[in-house]
Design a binder for these strands. Structure first.
Lengths: 340, 340
DNA sequence: ACGTGTTGTCTAAACGTGTAGATTTAAACT
DNA sequence: AGTTTAAATCTACACGTTTAGACAACACGT
C-alpha cells in the first residue's frame, strides 16, 4: 500500500527525478530504454502519483469548487452535469457543495475551498448577498457565476436571455386571449428571476395591459410552494385566467393546486413555467415552458472558468448569453369563454 | 496572497511549531499570552492552513468520494444531501462524481480518488460489475455501498428492505382486486431491484396468482423509458390492469403513457411506484408508491463510512436495514368492473 | 543542594512530489 | 585536437504542514 516514486526509482534503478520526467513527459528528455523500463515498473507496481504532494509542490490543485443552492430542483444537477463533463475532459475534478441558499454555508464552503487551494470556483448564488464572491476574489480564486449577475461589478458569468424568456411566455399567454395573467415570483429576486419578471411586465405593457401587483405572489423553491402560490392566486378577488411561474417547480406544484381546485388545464386555466426540466414533458397535462439550455450553461461555465485558471482567452461563444425558446405543450390554451 | 504559518510565526515572534500548536490545540501546551498573540495575528492576516500540506503530512485527507450512477433521478441528489449533511458536520467534504452507470467512468473515478488519497468512498454501483469495489479495497480505501449488495462478499452497506417494499406494493394491488399485475424491471437487476422483484413474485404466489413473465418488461433510467415500458405492457395480448414499477421515474413516465392511451387512472388502471421521490406527491393523479428513507440512507452511509475511516465502532442503527412503507395516494384503485 | 517533573518553546525531520543546477557522456562542429 | 552543443541523468532544495526530540526555565519534593 502506498507505492511512491522512490519505490519505482529504486526498482527501476534510476533516480526519482527520472521517474518524474517519465510520468510527466517532463521538462527533461529521457532515453527510450529507460523510459520503457520505468513505465514497466509503474505498470507492475500500480504506482499513481500522490496528488496531494504534487499539488503542494505545484502550488495548484486540479479541483474546482462548485456551490449550488439547492439540489431539490433538477435544474441544478443538470447544470452540474454540464460542468462535470467539461471538467472531467480537461482533467479537473469537481467538488460539489450545496448551500441550501444559506449565506453562512456559502461562506463556509468558500473558506474550505481556500483551505484546499482550489484554483477556481463556480458559484450559483442562493441569496442576493455577494460577500462570498468578494471573499473568493480576496483569496485569489478565479470565480465564475452561473445564471446570475453581480450588481455593479463585471463578474465572469454565463447567462441566459431571461428577459426574452419572460417576453415569450407572456406574449404566448396574451396571444391565447388572456388578459389577467398571474406571476409567481422568486422569494427574493436575483438577476435571472428579475429578468423573467421584467419580460413579464414589459410584454404586458407592450400589449396595453396594465400591470396589477395583486397578480404577483411569492413562490419558493419546492413543489409545495408552487401549490400554495397558485392557491393564493385563485383566492384573490378577481383571479387570473393564466399564470406564468418563474420556474417549472412552481408550475408543476401549481398544476397540482389547479387539479385539486377542480380546474381543467388548459380549458379552464393556463400555466407556463420556466427552465424546461425533464419532468415538464411528463406532467399531465404536459407543461408549456421556456427552454433553458442547462447542460450547456454548465459546460460554458466550466469552459470559462478553466480558461481563466489557465490564463487563456475564453472562447467567444461562452460569453454570449444563451438563447431560450418557448416550448408549447398542453398546459396553455385559449382563454375560456366565460372570461373573454 | 498565500500567507503561511511561517508568516504568522514571524509576525508573532514565535516559531512555526508554536503556531501549529495554537491552530490545532496541538499536542504541546502553549501559554495563554502567546496563544492569544498568535490568534490575533491569524485574525489579522486571515491565515488558513494549507489543507494540501496538512493532508500530505498527516497522510490522510478529509475528503470522501461519492460515486452515483445518475443524477437525473432525484433519488440520488437526495441521498447525496444526506451524505453531505453528516460529512459537513464531521468536517469532511464530499467529492461527488456521477458515473452515468458506466463501468469505465467508475474506474476512472476510483483511480482519481486513489490519486487524491481519499480515506473513504461511498459507492452506489451503476452496473453489476463490482471491480471498482475490489480496486478500492486494493488501494486500502474504506468503501461503503448504498442500497446495493455485493454478491458473495461482506461489504459495509446501508440497505433498505426492498423485498418488503415489493410485498407491500403487490399486496396493495391484489387487495384492490387486481389479478394481472405488470412489472417494470430495472434494465439489469441489482440487489435493490431484484429485491423488489422478489417481493412482487412471492406476494403473487402467496395469493395464488401464477407468475406470468409476459407481464414483465424492462424499464430504464429516464421518464421516457417508463413511458415506453407501459406502452409495451398495454400492447400485449392480455394486458394487465395494474403495474408495479421498480422506481418512481418509471411510474411517472408510465402515467404519461396511460394518459396518452386515454386510460383514466385509477378508474381504468392502477400504477404503483417505488422510492417516493418528491414529484410523486405532485403528479396528477398523485402516485401511490413505496417510501424509501433516502436522506437517512445517505446519512447512515456517511456515518458508517466515517466510523470505518476513524476506526470506531459504527452505531448499531446504521447497520440495520431501513424500513419502508406504502404511501397510498391516487394512482391505485379497485379494478374496473369489466375486468373483474 | 539536588534530582524530578512540568511547562513552554524551538529546531529539524518528515510527508511525496517537481525541477533547477550540476555532472557526465556522447555527438557535432571548427 | 579542441571546443561547443546536446542528451541523459543525478543531487538537492522547495512546497507548507505536523510533531518528535532537545532544551531552558521553573516549581516541587526530599
Amino acid at each position: 500500500m502506498g507505492v511512491t516514486a522512490d519505490d519505482v526509482a529504486r526498482i527501476a534503478g534510476v533516480s526519482r527525478a527520472t521517474v518524474s520526467y517519465v510520468v510527466n513527459d517532463g521538462p527533461r528528455p529521457v532515453s527510450k530504454e529507460t523510459a520503457e523500463r520505468v513505465r514497466e515498473v509503474i505498470r507492475q507496481t500500480g504506482y499513481q502519483p500522490n496528488a496531494l504532494a504534487r499539488n503542494l509542490r505545484l502550488q495548484r490543485s486540479k479541483t474546482i469548487g462548485l456551490i449550488v443552492p439547492d439540489t431539490h430542483n433538477p435544474y441544478f444537477p443538470e447544470v452540474a452535469r454540464g460542468i462535470e463533463s467539461i471538467a472531467f475532459e480537461r482533467g479537473y475534478s469537481v467538488m460539489l457543495c450545496h448551500s441550501a441558499s444559506d449565506l453562512d454555508r456559502e461562506i463556509q464552503y468558500v473558506n474550505m475551498f481556500h483551505a484546499q487551494r482550489v484554483p477556481g470556483v463556480i458559484w450559483i448564488p442562493g441569496t442576493n448577498i455577494f460577500e462570498p464572491y468578494h471573499k473568493l476574489k480576496g483569496y485569489g480564486i478565479q470565480t465564475v457565476v452561473i445564471d446570475r449577475l453581480v450588481p455593479h461589478e463585471a463578474v465572469p458569468a454565463v447567462v441566459a436571455d431571461n428577459v426574452e424568456g419572460g417576453n415569450l411566455a407572456t406574449q404566448h399567454l396574451i396571444d391565447l386571449g388572456h388578459r389577467r395573467i398571474g406571476y409567481i415570483s422568486r422569494p427574493v429576486d436575483l438577476s435571472h428571476s428579475s429578468g423573467r419578471f421584467e419580460g413579464y411586465q414589459t410584454t404586458l405593457k407592450k400589449n396595453g395591459i396594465p400591470f396589477d401587483d395583486s397578480l404577483v405572489v411569492k413562490g419558493g423553491f419546492i413543489l409545495e410552494d408552487g401549490r400554495r402560490a397558485v392557491q393564493e392566486l385563485l383566492a384573490i378577488e378577481n383571479p387570473p385566467t393564466a399564470i406564468f411561474a418563474y420556474n417549472d417547480i412552481m408550475a408543476i406544484g401549481g398544476l397540482r393546486a389547479l387539479h385539486e381546485a377542480g380546474l381543467h388545464v388548459p380549458d379552464d386555466f393556463s400555466l407556463v413555467g420556466f427552465d424546461d426540466i425533464a419532468q415538464s414533458a411528463f406532467t399531465c397535462p404536459a407543461l408549456t415552458t421556456v427552454h433553458l439550455p442547462k447542460f450547456e450553461m454548465g459546460q460554458n461555465g466550466a469552459k470559462l472558468l478553466i480558461a481563466l485558471i489557465e490564463k487563456q482567452k475564453p472562447p467567444e461563444e461562452v460569453l454570449t448569453p444563451l438563447s431560450v425558446r418557448l416550448i408549447v405543450r398542453e398546459s396553455s390554451g385559449a382563454v375560456s369563454p366565460q372570461h373573454s
